[in-house]
Write a protein that binds this DNA or RNA. Sequence first.
DNA 1: GCGCATTACTAATGCGCATTAACGGACCGG
DNA 2: CCGGTCCGTTAATGCGCATTAGTAATGCGC
Lengths: 368, 368
Amino acid sequence: MDQPKKRAKPGRNPASASRTSRPRQAEVAELAGVSQATVSLVLSARGDGRAAAISEETRQRVHEAARSLGYVPDPAARRLAAARNNLLGVFSFTATFPTDVQHSYYPFLVGVEQEAAAQGYDLVLFTGSSSGGASAVGPEALSRVRLADGCLFLGRHVPRAELKRLVADGFPVVHLGRREELEGLAWVGADYVSASREVVGHLAELGHRRIVLVREDDDAPPSTDRQQGFLDGLAAAGTAGGPGAVLRCADPMRELTAQRVRTLVADGVTAFVAEETDTGAAWRALITAVREAGLSCPGDVSLGLLGSPPADLAAQPVPMGFDIPRHRLGAAAVRLLAALVAGEEAREPLVACEFRAGETAGPPIQSP
Amino acid sequence: MDQPKKRAKPGRNPASASRTSRPRQAEVAELAGVSQATVSLVLSARGDGRAAAISEETRQRVHEAARSLGYVPDPAARRLAAARNNLLGVFSFTATFPTDVQHSYYPFLVGVEQEAAAQGYDLVLFTGSSSGGASAVGPEALSRVRLADGCLFLGRHVPRAELKRLVADGFPVVHLGRREELEGLAWVGADYVSASREVVGHLAELGHRRIVLVREDDDAPPSTDRQQGFLDGLAAAGTAGGPGAVLRCADPMRELTAQRVRTLVADGVTAFVAEETDTGAAWRALITAVREAGLSCPGDVSLGLLGSPPADLAAQPVPMGFDIPRHRLGAAAVRLLAALVAGEEAREPLVACEFRAGETAGPPIQSP
DNA sequence: GCGCATTACTAATGCGCATTAACGGACCGG
DNA sequence: CCGGTCCGTTAATGCGCATTAGTAATGCGC
């Protein structure tokens, strides 16, 4: 009577419909006359490296049995046992799927998807702002991402506190876009400094000595980086920057008039570069002013754009400048994230931009 | 001494790096001072129906503990334990985010994402055939989707055999786009028949009696449906279709000449409708031919497009016709899938298109 | 012919969760 | 005051697989 208390076996509810049809490893094992463990060893044998100690004959029998039964491993069980989900999260605080196909996140996603596939990960898409009723946009909205092995963040409005919490907990996180304010947060970004320096370098090579940067009145890192690169480029070319080299406008369209451009050109300026922003205001203002000043572009004055032109100006003559490799940025972010998930160290976060020769730059005119 | 042989506990290898960060139910339980089972009961309590027998106070404590720990249930474990994980899969055999935006499933995804959020599901993007090297396109490629509660399939190149297997196993699957060849496969599609009939109806109401359909030489269901709707519309308008009512061209640009159009118009034809295809060839050929024939559009002849114009022609006068509600299609697919997951029956798979008045249709000219 | 290494395989275990029988305590009618 | 009932909670179990300690069998050397 002192045997351990006998308990019924609760277990699980009766087999659901699909139970009957899907063979388990145990059934394969029985058919092959081996143990379940052997089946697992055979079927999950990594192609690379040494094969486990299983005889070729057994291996064959197991494979045969598996095939004849139509065995397919259960991914849930596989992932549970392996303690990894092979899932990467993608979180954007603005809608992950903006209605506009032209949206700037799209190219990132292309790269993200490709690289994730290459690394053997699937993607879980989270939306912070989704109007969906179920997901309350509470502070814990972010913690759902823990479902994945790691998470990629897009957009600038990700709440700091929550992100910090994730990072502090050691959850692998990568931010797409420079994000240095948050200690320990991994990120990847485009190397605007080098790219901008290169643009200035090309202009200098063509012979330009007086170059002006038109930028907006915004202290976002991308803007700062571009100015930095611009000034570096000037220095490398042996040209003094000086305060007049940077034209900072709160409202470019209003401040950068044709008259202003004429004055600068008369003063010896032979080339302008504009920074790229969301709105493209600086570039828009620049080409408008130059046109209205009656100046021809590669002829009278050379223009450069530190980025890509806005979609509605894409048909215009291609500006000399650089393209942000969004595609590669997305891929780099995934690689970094995968490395973090695997417990490796973060690597170089900067991705080089691609120089674009365009058709808006030429040698400076000889001032009369 | 006859106790069962003592064996060491093999278990699994020491915790990987991420182990620390992901709290388990057991940890929540400890913090709340209850058992793991209680945590499970509280957290998986179905909102509907009777709440499990847990006191409100305990419930509170558990929720609090879970929140403070940032607990998120492990999808794999959830799934393995025979429940569901509130995950819906999206699988497209071509890249979901293709480089070529034209063929993108993006608009669908907008609807999918919204509806999934509304239904309380997260989305897993199973990266199908991406050029990535890792994922061999073996038979198991598709079976990964079993991690989710159900899966949405996009694209026409999904391998039949594997899909069939999923369906046969009772795994909830919905195909976006008509797919009747596969017995038992649920799908949602746009109602091209009704929409095309409506377009013809509008033309008939305007007074058109002789209407010609320009279509490509392709027997895909969407083409067939449009023709069907077109003929239905003619019949409803009391106009005989006749063999001449459908112009089937292998190469519309070449076959649909200005001369041909002139002849038709002279013969009494007052309106043309073109089908929409990937390339937009039929519509392109039609408007080109009409222009070259020197005919003005809403004046001399009315035009309709059974679908949306290709992106590069969007700036032209908006064609009368209909828009495929990709957004709503995606949402409908998710609703259907959610119903299947819940064990309900499939419902009406057709989603209505949206009529677009446009500016290419008017009353027919009185032939002299 | 005994120790020791190697090979080929199996038993046991747990991943994290859901499920359910059982249990202890409070309450209650008789 | 005792058996019964209800309530809140828990222990135990297994989902399907990967992992690893252990074992039986065999080979090898001296």
